[in-house]
Design a binder for these strands. Structure first.
Length: 194
DNA sequence: CTACCGATTGACT
DNA sequence: GTCAATCGGTAGA
């Protein structure tokens, strides 16, 4: 299936975050392919969002968010990595955080990387899926419209695509914790939290 | 240089 | 539910 191209990402983060649900995130490297369906995302927006890393202005870390859409913004938090897909337009820092996948391809590879057997423990969190797909700082700023990392497929249709909108995970109250910017597939058992 | 702290996870009560 | 691990980004002296 064809990777989604620039125009998909060149929209506001909320629209992209919702539209990513049900599509497939594919990671290819020397060890093989690992992939899963995106079942949970969050949006970080340019205006009125103190939880956005870019809310403090341009820094060395958040600079990928100020670049063109369709690229990865990968950062470390504690011992984990998080993958964001930059959206909107250059100079307007918005991104969609990938929070959980339903594992579909390369299950044994992901099990080995995670050190867990259970399907539900492979990609049910932003740090978990980065470990399962071998995503780290080496992919920061990389285009996500071509191998080794890209998104493909059509969104789920019908009842399976029912979307729940809630508040984002892990933000302190003053960082916009009340904003309805988290999205997940209502019927998926692979989301990080309910 | 130091101090603080986080868009997390896993182990434990 | 609670809490520690562990490291780099950021601000400030």
């Amino acid at each position: 299936m064809e990777p989604l191209s620039r125009s998909f990402f060149a929209r506001d983060a909320v629209t992209v975050a919702r539209d990513l649900l049900g599509r497939k995130l594919v990671r290819i490297c020397g060890e093989g392919m690992a992939a899963g369906l995106i079942v949970e995302t969050e949006a970080y927006v340019a205006e009125g969002d103190p939880g956005n890393h870019a809310a403090i202005g341009l820094t060395a870390r958040n600079s990928p968010m100020f670049g063109p859409p369709g690229h990865a913004y990968v950062y470390r938090v504690h011992l984990s990595f998080c993958l964001n897909l930059v959206t909107a337009e250059e100079g307007r820092p918005e991104a969609a955080l990938i929070r959980a996948l339903e594992p579909t391809d390369g299950l044994e590879l992901m099990r080995r990387r995670r050190g867990r057997d259970s399907l539900k423990e492979l990609c049910s969190g932003p740090g978990k899926l980065c470990q399962a797909l071998a995503i780290d700082l080496a992919l920061n700023r990389a285009a996500v419209m071509e191998p080794p990392l890209f998104v493909t497929g059509q969104p789920e249709a019908g009842a399976a695509s029912e979307i729940v909108v809630t508040t984002r995970i892990g933000l302190r109250p003053e960082r916009g914790a009340h904003l309805p910017l988290r999205f997940y597939l209502a019927r998926s058992p692979y989301v990080s939290r309910r």
